[in-house]
Structures are given as structure tokens and as C-alpha cells.
Amino acid sequence: MLDDRARMEAAKKEKVEQILAEFQLQEEDLKKVMRRMQKEMDRGLRLETHEEASVKMLPTYVRSTPEGSEVGDFLSLDLGGTNFRVMLVKVGEGEEGQWSVKTKHQMYSIPEDAMTGTAEMLFDYISECISDFLDKHQMKHKKLPLGFTFSFPVRHEDIDKGILLNWTKGFKASGAEGNNVVGLLRDAIKRRGDFEMDVVAMVNDTVATMISCYYEDHQCEVGMIVGTGCNACYMEEMQNVELVEGDEGRMCVNTEWGAFGDSGELDEFLLEYDRLVDESSANPGQQLYEKLIGGKYMGELVRLVLLRLVDENLLFHGEASEQLRTRGAFETRFVSQVESDTGDRKQIYNILSTLGLRPSTTDCDIVRRACESVSTRAAHMCSAGLAGVINRMRESRSEDVMRITVGVDGSVYKLHPSFKERFHASVRRLTPSCEITFIESEEGSGRGAALVSAVACKKACMLGQ
């Protein structure tokens, strides 16, 4: 009897593995994704193909990295998701002549009506938060230079001027797309009239992360975010950046690689679950690469896999709870928690219980395998993109072996128990001629924006502006 049951459990697990095998990517698959990513990057950089390229390769006008001589107080704003952060950054000489960066910050959550109302409502709310922060720190009387981390696709015309191309991540505030974001912020500050600010720089969160990590390690020339969304930036040779005049030196390019796949480059790798996630998203047909990796989508992918296993009578005796059938019910943090389970399955059992399920031991094991399959594919897909960037940098610099540091931020990278190990191992397999160091950014977005502002202020002083 026991043997029969054991055989049935083994057969069930084997069927589960057959279904989950769809998520496995072979090294040849990853090399294919990497080569296609490089081709799209090239198209994004070139003037004649930029418009139709899915990977936009947006110039950021960040050319210099901090040298350690900029000092002063800077205000930093960070808008990239449902939370908005205001930070005071003091850049100065530390002990023994070292450079020191001290920060104080406060988080504000953005109400739904500000995210989806008008641009005026959104930026009025942001300036209200700045006003509140300055009151708390008794700094209303000071006109501070301000660095703005704005983590949406922007076409820069200068370091302090950028046109919002399109909202992502659930934002829909009308009247912002096609307009200068810094102008919208300046107008809102003017409307309030109770404080003055000098907006000197606007950067993407990947750029802010790279600059913040450069402060720790001067070989950091790539910034990457794996959180709600997924994106990367890197220092490109100016001669390859056709959208900006000049051939000397390097400029940081914001790849906006989340949109890779929007022209069909990933079609052969998309599964039924991916198509369902895409169809029910706020932007169907867009940001397809990001939807395979980002935390906004990972939990939902797992939920759809679990429903398939229920329908195949391989999980929960073929019956799903009402909660499990509800879109968004299986949160991405559950994926991390399930994979963090120590082996007694308590954590998995508790999560499934909150979803109205009474799982068996085998159910718990199957749910864990589903989570591992989805998150491992995410790590491997992400590795193909980064390997594409790094191999490109090595080739354009004609280096036999390139040493490089990548600064990384984002909740999936930082909080998932195995993502970074799987990701690092896969990147290294795909970049055999590179020695890569990964560092995690601390308060990256805010500190990085302030350091970019410090560079901009120093330049302005040198130019006598």
C-alpha cells in the first residue's frame, strides 16, 4: 500500500517536472537572447534605426563620474514606483581627507489618484512632500541643488532636461508624456511658492545606482535594477552614441532593455503563462523582457503555473481556492519566502493557508518547484541581457580580458534567497573573457542622484555659470 502511494507521488512529481521543464533555458538559448539583445542595442544607438529599435539606448548626458572633490548639501528625489523618497545628502571631506556622503531620508507613498490623475496632481503632491521634508529638517530658507531620480523612459536633451516617452509600472498621470519632466517639477514648486529649489540633474535609477557604486569602486561602469521592473545602464564610447554629437570619451546610456521583445525577438521563448500575464497587464505587448524578470510579474506567473497544475490534477487534489483564482493573489514576496523555507515546509504551508488552501507535504514541495522554475528562468533571462552589455563593452574597448564592476539594486536581487547566485553564475558562463565584480548599492537611487548633481554643480562652477 505504502509502495503504491510512494509510486503515485513519484509519478505525480515526474509529471510536474515535465510541465515545469518549459521554463528551462539551455545555454544556447541564452546565447541567442544575448546576441539578439546586442543587435537591438546597436539599432538603438544608431541614428537611422533608433526610432524602430525596441531597446532605445537613451543617452543620459552623464559623462563624468564623481571624483571626490564636490562638497555641499544636496536634496535628492526618487520616483520610480508607488513609494517616493526625499533625501538630504551631505557631501563633504571625511576623516583623513576621505570623501564622505551622509544621508537623511523619508519615504512617502503615492496615492492612487496622483498616479493615475493628471501630471499637475502628481507633481503638486511631490512638491508637497518636499515642503514637508524641508519643514522637518528646518531647511526651507536654503535654496538647495536638487537631483531627481526618475525611473521611467526619458529622452534627455541635457542633464536637466528630459522628455517622458511613456509611463510604465502602473503610472498613468495624463499630460506628462511628451513633456519635460524637470519643467513639470519646477512648475509645481513655483505653484507652491513656499520654498526654492535648483533642479540641476535628472537621472534614471540605473544611472543613480551606477554612480553610487562608483563611489565604492571606481571600476563600476554598469548599473542595473532588478526590482519591480528590470533595466540597466553602462558607459558607452561616445563615438557609438549617434544621437549625441561628439566622439570623445564616454557617456552613460540608459538601455531601457525592459522593452526588448516588443518587436518579436522573444516570441519563441514566451510561454502561455507569459501571454496571460501580458494580456492582463496595463501595457499589453510592451516591456516583454521586463515581464519575464521583474517583481511586478513574478508572483503572478507562479500563480498561473499553480492553476495549470491544479487543472492537471497534480496539486491540491485538483481544487483551487477562490483566493488562488484571484489575479495578483500570489505576491512576489511569497516566491522569495517559499524558496527561503528551511525544509520543514512550515513557511510554505503558512503562505498557502493564507490563500485558503490546506496543502499536503507533496503540495508544498511542488509549489516550491514552481517558484524555483519561474525565478530561475528570470535570473537566466536577466543574465543574457547583462552578458550582452558586458561583452559589447569588452569588444568596443578591444580588451582581451576586461575587469568590470556592476552596481545592482532592486528588491528581487536583494531579497530573493537564490536569485543573485543563479544570476551571477549564468552571467559568468556567458562572459568567459571578463572578470566581473557585483556590488549592491546602498540607498543607491538617492545618493547617486545627489552625486550626479554634485558633478553638475562642479561643472557649472568651472564653466562660470
Rank of each mutant, 00 (worst) to 15 (best):
Q106I: 07
R368Q: 06
F195N: 01
A53Y: 02
M57N: 02
L122Y: 14
R5H: 14
G285C: 11
F260L: 04
K140W: 05
H141S: 06
A114R: 13
A208D: 00
I225C: 01
F423R: 00
F84S: 01
L270I: 05
M115K: 12
S441D: 08
V374L: 07
T405A: 02
K140D: 04
L355T: 04
N179E: 05
I189H: 02
E237D: 12
S263C: 11
V200I: 05
A370G: 02
P359L: 08
Q219P: 03
Y234W: 01
K102E: 13
P432N: 14
G299T: 05
W99C: 06
G318F: 04
V406I: 09
E265A: 05
Y413T: 04
L430E: 03
R368N: 06
I439D: 01
D124W: 05
T168F: 12
S433F: 08
N83Y: 11
Y125D: 13
F195T: 09
M381G: 08
E96K: 13
C230S: 04
M197Y: 08
N204M: 07
L276W: 11
T354C: 07
H137N: 14
T49C: 10
V389L: 12
R63D: 00
T116K: 11
N313R: 09
L58K: 08
H156C: 07
E279R: 13
F148L: 11
L165R: 09
K161M: 13
Q219V: 15
E256A: 09
P284F: 14
R422N: 13
G97K: 14
D274Y: 05
T361Q: 15
M197E: 01
E95M: 09
M202W: 06
R397W: 03
A454V: 11
I366S: 03
L288Q: 07
E290L: 15
D113I: 10
L451S: 13
V71E: 03
H317D: 07
D78V: 07
G170Y: 15
S453G: 15
G258S: 15
M402V: 05
V253W: 00
M238F: 08
D73S: 02
D400A: 04
D365E: 07
M210I: 01
L324T: 07
D73V: 00
F195S: 06
R403V: 09
L315K: 00
L309W: 04
T149C: 14
S109L: 11
S445Y: 13
S281W: 10
A114S: 13
Q347H: 05
V203Y: 00
E245G: 01
K169L: 14
L451I: 11
M197T: 06
R422F: 10
L386R: 00
N231W: 04
I366H: 06
F23C: 07
A378P: 01
E272F: 06
N391R: 10
I225Y: 02
L415C: 08
M87C: 05
L47D: 15
L292Q: 14
W257H: 04
R447W: 11
L307Q: 08
M393E: 03
E96L: 12
D4C: 12
S396H: 14
G227T: 04
I189Q: 15
V181W: 09
D78S: 12
N240Y: 01
M381Y: 14
M139P: 03
K31C: 07
G261K: 01
D344S: 02
L355S: 04
M121A: 12
N204G: 08
D278L: 11
D73A: 01
L304N: 14
T228K: 04
V302D: 00
D341A: 05
T209Q: 03
T437E: 08
S398M: 04
Q286H: 12
N391A: 11
I351T: 02
I159M: 12
C434S: 06
A370R: 00
L146G: 12
R7L: 13
M210V: 02
T168S: 12
R46C: 12
V203I: 03
S360N: 05
D311H: 02
V62I: 05
S54I: 10
D187Q: 07
K142R: 11
F419V: 04
G448Q: 12
F330L: 09
G68C: 05
G223P: 00
N166E: 13
P66Y: 14
L315V: 10
R369M: 04
A232Y: 03
P59V: 03
A173G: 05
L164R: 14
D113G: 08
S418K: 07
D311K: 13
L288H: 12
M41I: 09
M381S: 07
L315Q: 00
G388M: 07
T118V: 12
V199D: 04
S383H: 00
G464N: 12
K102V: 10
L309P: 00
I130T: 02
D311F: 07
G446K: 10
E221D: 04
G170L: 15
D198G: 01
G328C: 15
E196L: 05
A454L: 14
H317Y: 09
K346N: 07
G261M: 10
D344A: 02
D42P: 10
V182A: 12
T116E: 10
I110R: 05
E279Y: 13
A387L: 01
A53P: 05
K39S: 05
K15E: 11
Y125V: 10
L45R: 08
E245F: 03
R35I: 15
I110T: 11
G229Y: 03
T354E: 15
G328H: 02
H50W: 08
V222L: 03
N166V: 09
G229A: 14
H218M: 11
S151M: 11
E95S: 11
V310N: 01
L292V: 13
V203P: 02
V101W: 08
A114W: 15
I19T: 15
G183S: 08
V401H: 06
K15V: 15
E27Q: 15
G328I: 02
D247A: 01
W167S: 14
